[in-house]
């Protein structure tokens, strides 16, 4: 059972390779898995450096989104005025497609790294914000009553009830936003890359596609996919560990 996904993957790869061999598919249309591995082996340092650059943007954006999303959710939970002021803008930010605003951001923000982080943050922000906001409101009303009965101050209710209740929601938001930050970083890199900013895995993909180096393009794609999977499972594992330590999972 445990090996089922790996076996299935290997089987699919074998069929893919066989199909490419048997049908003599040209490598610039569809490279086989062996050609892709070969492309990676030809320039591991270049591809991995590009991946590191993309991941740096991803983690920076995830961090900023976590701080901003968490802080704005707390502000909203603490004040109705803040809620009225913030909520529509947060939704507007979420529904605006990144490719549409990325060129503007890249022009406005001088530093390319900062511009990429801003773009990825916009994509990663909403799940963290929305999840934390619903987590802050998730405590049962009886516990609210209990805190009122004992004359709790607002900051006490926030620190001892709302924030701890929001933690599991925040952590699952972090997991969703991790993948989104990676997607946001890649999209922003594509936009920036076509403007000549040469860094990150997306730029390698763009570059390889211009040169019809399909195996290298696929190798970069596979690296991105692996990074996304590791990020997702990693953030999930970290979240579970934290909740287990707190005795709530």
């Amino acid at each position: 059972m445990k090996w089922a996904p790996a076996l299935f993957g290997l089987l699919a790869l074998a069929l893919w390779q066989a199909a490419v061999w048997i049908e003599h598919v040209p490598v610039y249309v569809l490279p086989g898995p062996l050609a892709i591995v070969g492309a990676f082996a030809a320039d591991p340092v270049g591809l991995l450096t590009a991946l590191a650059s993309t991941l740096l943007v991803t983690f920076a954006a995830l961090f900023v989104a976590a701080v901003l999303g968490g802080a704005m959710a707390v502000a909203m939970s603490a004040s109705r005025l803040a809620q009225a002021a913030i909520q529509p803008w947060a939704v507007a930010l979420q529904v605006t497609p990144l490719p549409a605003i990325a060129p503007l951001i890249i022009i406005w923000v001088g530093d390319p790294f900062v511009a990429l982080v801003v773009c990825a943050t916009i994509v990663a922000f909403f799940p963290l914000f929305a999840n934390t906001a619903s987590g802050l409101a998730s405590a049962p009303p009886e516990l609210d009553d209990l805190f009122r009965l004992y004359g709790a101050r607002r900051w006490q209710t926030m620190a001892l009830l709302r924030l701890p209740a929001a933690l599991p929601y925040f952590l699952s938001g972090l997991r969703i936003s991790g993948g989104l930050a990676l997607v946001g970083a890649v999209v922003a890199e594509l936009v920036a890359g076509s403007g000549g900013f040469a860094s990150g895995l997306a730029y390698r993909i763009l570059e390889a596609s211009f040169r019809l180096e399909m195996p290298r393009m696929f190798a970069a794609l596979v690296l991105l996919a692996i990074a996304g999977i590791v990020l997702n499972f990693g953030l999930g594992a970290v979240g579970r560990m934290i909740l287990r330590r707190r005795g709530v999972a």
Binding site: L143, R246, V248
Partner: peptide, 9 residues
């Protein structure tokens, strides 16, 4: 309360 309403953490 009807439920124990404890802080689970």
């Amino acid at each position: 309360f009807q439920d124990a309403t404890l802080l689970p953490w």
